[in-house]
Amino acid sequence: MNSVTWVYFSVTFLAMVTCVLGMAGNSMVIWLLSFRVRRSPFCVYVLNLAVADFLFLFCMASMLCLETGLLVSDSTSFKIYEGVRRIKYFAYTAGLSLLTAISTQRCLSVLFPIWYKCHQPQHLSAAVCGVLWVLTLLMNFLASYFCVQLWHPNTNLCFTMDMVASGLILGIFLPIMILSSTILLIRVRKNTLLRRRRPRRLFVVILASVFVFLTCSLPLGLYWFLLYWEEKLLQNVILLYICLSRFSSCLSSSANPIIYFLVGSQKSHRLQDSLGVVLGRALRDDPEPEGRETPSMCTNDEV
């Protein structure tokens, strides 16, 4: 076994462990937001993001098992592998678009608080989530139709679809996410210095989630959209890059529940509070007075 193969199996094992832990954390968030925490508009986004992360981690774990030959025989593994790979791609793009929507809507609510509070549609968050799920599903269906060998593969159309997806995700979603997060960070920093008050926990959650995604999940997206078509790169380099980007993307999808717990926990009640209380406090969207206990549920006021 050469060094590249050793690195591949080692990183694959770490990615599998991360996937299992991440699925447990995201399933807990889904259950709490569905039954234990009253959902606000931003809680709706977090619920959909947790579903996308859980689906991505499940598909990633399934793919890793299929690649190492642990689940099915060779006669059926290829078809299952292709289906799981496309679902993983769908979950990745859905998570990216949802995170972009979260940071953008939070940025608008900060820049235009009065207009946003008075004129926002009642079910804006649910409508945006629905549109993003449908858009990513349509985009991935077209990519699958032209790229998957089981259907009607066409290299030229497959390349065109990847370039369109690359332009949409890396050219539109990603810049909007970075711009809105940067504005939000500047605004939070300014308010913290002027008012000498801790930033709202929801601000910290959004900024931390965006930072983790950009540092951990983006390399995998760059491979899918750009490096996949680059034939001049060495095969060993591509293999190592894929291994590390998969592991880092698993860390990204697993990190959000940890972020919610760390942001929502309080030093004086870290062990006494239930998970529902901690999650509700992390997603709370109104100012938190110093030295006072915050309610344990998300409020319906977004500003």
Rank of each mutant, 00 (worst) to 15 (best):
I102L: 14
R106L: 04
H119K: 14
L98C: 03
C129I: 04
P113S: 01
L142D: 05
S77E: 08
V131K: 02
E67G: 14
L137W: 14
S125N: 11
W115K: 06
S75T: 13
Q122E: 15
E67L: 14
L138G: 10
L71I: 12
Y81K: 13
A127N: 13
H119C: 14
A91R: 04
G83R: 09
A127L: 15
Q120M: 15
N140E: 13
L138Y: 10
L96E: 11
C129T: 09
T104F: 12
L71D: 00
A94K: 06
I114P: 00
R85P: 01
Y116K: 04
E82Q: 15
C107A: 09
F141E: 03
L142T: 11
L137T: 13
E82C: 13
F90Q: 06
W115I: 10
G130K: 12
L99V: 07
A126K: 13
G69L: 03
V134R: 07
L71H: 03
T100P: 02
H119Y: 15
I80N: 03
K88I: 02
T104S: 05
P113D: 00
R86L: 08
I114F: 09
Y92A: 10
A91H: 02
A91N: 02
V84E: 01
L70D: 02
L111P: 01
L124E: 10
S125R: 05
G83N: 13
W115L: 08
L70I: 09
L71R: 06
S97H: 06
S75Y: 15
K79S: 08
H119R: 15
V84P: 03
K79T: 11
E82N: 14
G130L: 12
R85A: 12
V84G: 01
Y92D: 03
L124K: 11
T136R: 08
L142C: 08
V84Q: 01
V84A: 07
V128I: 15
H119G: 03
V72C: 09
I80V: 12
S103I: 03
G130I: 04
T136H: 11
S125Y: 06
L66P: 05
A101T: 04
C118R: 15
P113C: 00
F112E: 01
K117G: 04
N140Q: 12
E82P: 00
I102D: 01
Q105R: 11
Y116C: 10
I80D: 00
L98V: 04
V72A: 09
G69I: 05
L66R: 07
S75V: 13
T100F: 05
S125T: 10
L71Y: 13
L132D: 00
V131W: 07
L138Q: 04
L99H: 01
L124M: 12
L111M: 08
R85H: 13
L111I: 10
E67S: 15
L138K: 04
T104E: 00
A143S: 12
L138F: 13
G69M: 03
P113F: 02
A126W: 09
S73R: 13
F90G: 03
A126I: 08
L98Q: 06
A127K: 15
W115R: 07
W115A: 05
R106A: 01
L138E: 02
T93I: 07
S75D: 12
